[in-house]
Nucleic acid binder design. Structure first.
Lengths: 219, 219
DNA sequence: CCTACCGATCGGTAGG
DNA sequence: CCTACCGATCGGTAGG
């Protein structure tokens, strides 16, 4: 929807493997705008960032942005939806290669933590700017979040039913695990004392400890 | 600093146990403004809320607010600092009544969760509007946060040293515990399926599970 | 507590 | 991609 091409969506010229240069530069300019917006929205907030700020980041004037995007609001919307879609897809990929609940939780947590370590700007925007997203987009985004949470709850429920896990509350355990992983985005530094992989592993371990059955057993 | 009285700070008339009515209504009006600001900042964000919005909540015009407050920025600052001070004080109170590390962690977590369940607006503002806080206040607030985090780390370190706890990383375990408790503010509802006390207890348990030594022992 | 008002800035459009 | 410009709104002040 945000992408402007010379063709309507149903007549995309799929025969040309190399996009013509006008189209390519349009797309790359959009990517540059989106990246500048991510940096500034994360730093100053949506309402704290002006279109002029974004334009200056690219060395152009604010009105020129509108040759590439529809509005400030669609810029925010596209950033937030892309983020949720990527997160959901990465979890699906992570759990597809095993059937064991504990292993699925470990891989989900590692994927979750890696995503948030790699997408710090997007995470900050996602946590901070939900209120800045107008309807119906806000509702739709919360639905996408709900979908993600529910996938986690089903995973944990499966493990509880087969005795691998034990918890006083499945939803609370899931909220706790998701929230602690999101928090990684707030402090992770690529040049920090721990690598992304080390952190992902430790968080995977913590998730399993949270769900571990009591030593004595419950039966 | 935000409080306006008829007297300079060093000649407050402490002999009068009942504040005179002008002073009292000044103070209560300030409290009303701060409460309206908390609600709106949490809902729409700092930059998304205008002084006119806040004034309308009280049925007055925007310029009248300036009889009670210095600026929009000091309003935000006071909200955020009050929040951190309360949180730190409540943890100190929570750990003062026992010396056992596990029990201190449990009580800290319960206190942490209760605070965030009870102060949802303040938590949202605290997580969302750090960037809106100008220097030197932003720096000072982050220092206060650091103080809180360090108190937790010392608690956990003590438990690790005496063998009550086991973790691959003290700071990561602390970040995880703090973040999961903060998250309670995002979904807690007073009329929800679990009471604040039930949630606090479950989170206390989760904190201890996170720090539990492996069943086999490490020595 | 109000009205009247300030300069600054906002997102966005027109038109080239 | 630009300049010129729009109406709207912002935080805050003056003065009563």
């Amino acid at each position: 929807m945000p992408r402007q091409t010379l063709y309507p969506a149903d007549v995309t010229p799929s025969t040309n493997p190399v996009p013509d240069s006008a189209e390519a530069s349009q797309a790359s300019r959009q990517a540059e705008i989106r990246s500048a917006a991510k940096t500034l929205f994360a730093q100053r907030g949506y309402h704290g960032t002006s279109m002029k700020d974004i334009a200056e980041e690219l060395g152009i004037k604010a009105p020129s942005l509108y040759n590439h995007i529809d509005s400030k609001q669609t810029l925010l919307r596209d950033i937030m939806f892309e983020t949720m879609a990527t997160l959901i897809a990465s979890q699906k990929a992570a759990i597809s290669t095993t059937k064991d609940a504990a292993e699925q939780v470990r891989r989900s947590m590692e994927s979750h933590v890696r995503y948030h370590a790699q997408h710090r700007r997007e995470t900050i925007i996602g946590n901070t700017e939900i209120a800045s997203l107008k309807q119906p987009y806000r509702r739709q985004l919360l639905e996408a979040r709900r979908e993600y949470t529910q996938a986690w709850e089903e995973l944990v429920r499966k493990g509880v039913e087969n005795g691998e896990f034990e918890t006083q509350s499945i939803p609370l355990a899931v909220y706790a695990m998701l929230e602690m992983g999101i928090g990684v985005a707030l402090w992770f530094r690529e040049d920090g004392p721990l690598t992304e992989s080390e952190i992902a592993y430790i968080y995977g371990d913590m998730a399993l400890k949270l769900l571990a059955p009591a030593p004595g057993g419950s039966a």
